[in-house]
Write a protein that binds this DNA or RNA. Structure first.
Lengths: 216, 216
DNA sequence: TCACGTTAAGCTGTGCACAGCTGAATATGA
DNA sequence: TCATATTCAGCTGTGCACAGCTTAACGTGA
């Protein structure tokens, strides 16, 4: 949290804070102080507040007057609800006017697979995050229905924290699963079968759901 | 837009502005001036800005630096995308752990039906809005999956403007359709069949979709 | 007359000081 | 010792002045 002299734009600050929450640098319950964040990013509290309101809308934080701004603590039933919705949304990806695949898509998946194999050899949580991130936005870019794409992005960031928690317990397992997932996505793209792509996503979300356990 | 002396809370201001956009008091393209709104609600620009940011997240307005805050102009393809998503979401209402019906639900629907019949005799756009509003939140309260409910609410407010535009062209048609819809909802509740409730909603959204025409 | 550079008005974005709320530590009485 | 009242530190919410951006009107020269 070193103070950087360079001013950051609102969009940059948003991405940084969002990633910190998703990567559990700010675990649920963490209190974020607007003044501290303002100092860190060399801006006043005003733009920081705007970013925090955006994060609140994304369901990642919650502001309470006189208390502080707190990273959301999701209950087990809320997490399960989010996962079940993601299952349904994934099924729609291939059905709701998907955009055509291109050679670029195939090449990018192959590149991601290379990185995932590397991850299997030496696991780094940041790299796992980055590959998942790139894969997500690649698929997001294929979704033709703008409303569906909006939802797909929304719930991705809500769910991200959950499986990162799991990734810390079983890094080799999630790395291997990621390679498998990329292989299935690759096949769907080679076969030019967007429905298969959506169902592949559905399945890997289901695997994540099956690993969920009520905590505490 | 008379200036009221009483200070309004942020939540009140949000509801009021949201309703004005949905009811087309602020048609798409309208420029909202933060200073004017601040005067109207007897607050400073700061809380007004917070509300406008929330509306921007809801997809109803768009702020552009140096220009103004403009009510969103949805393209035909965006409208169609939203409707198609609502179709799919409606189908899920009865499938994703709906909450049990109660006698209160049935009575409220019967009350709404009475108001809808009254509306058929004398159409008032505000009354049409209020009945739809009440019906929406009644159904929203039956949705057991919190993520699904969140989406149902989100797209309801995005789509509202569209059919209000249509309601101005065919008031008697939409009033009659509303009574029919309430009858179907009533039957689903009497039969204790949440799946039927979801499909009834799906169908009436589909009727709305079929009436959509590319404009201009 | 027209093209283009300049200017000015008006908007949102930002910084900062202060009001108001909350929760916990502290003081006070029995 | 304990229950209760009170104070206070620290947070978010609000108000306001100013910076920075955008656009349209205006002026100027060819």
């Amino acid at each position: 949290m070193a103070k950087t002299d360079k001013r950051s734009s609102a969009e940059e600050i948003f991405s940084i804070l969002r990633d910190r929450i998703c990567l559990l640098d700010y675990p649920p319950g963490t209190v974020l102080r607007e003044a501290d964040l303002a100092t860190e990013f060399s801006v006043s509290r005003t733009p920081v507040r705007a970013v925090l309101q955006k994060l609140a809308h994304a369901g990642l934080i919650e502001s309470r007057d006189g208390v502080g701004t707190i990273v959301t603590e999701l209950s087990f039933s809320e997490i399960r609800d989010i996962y079940r919705m993601r299952l349904k949304i994934a099924e729609l990806i291939g059905q709701m006017d998907p955009l055509p695949f291109s050679a670029v898509h195939r090449e990018e998946i192959e590149a991601l697979r290379g990185r995932a194999v590397e991850l299997k050899a030496r696991f780094r949580i940041e790299m796992y995050w980055q590959i998942n991130h790139d894969l997500h936005f690649l698929i997001s870019g294929i979704i033709g229905n703008s409303a569906l794409r909006q939802m797909w992005d929304h719930f991705y960031f809500q769910a991200a924290r959950i499986w990162y928690q799991h990734a810390r317990f079983d890094p080799t397992g999630v790395a291997a699963s990621l390679v498998d997932e990329l292989d299935e996505v690759h096949r769907a793209i080679c076969e030019d079968d967007p429905v298969a792509l959506g169902y592949a996503q559905r399945n890997y979300i289901a695997y994540g759901l099956s690993r969920l356990q009520p905590r505490r």
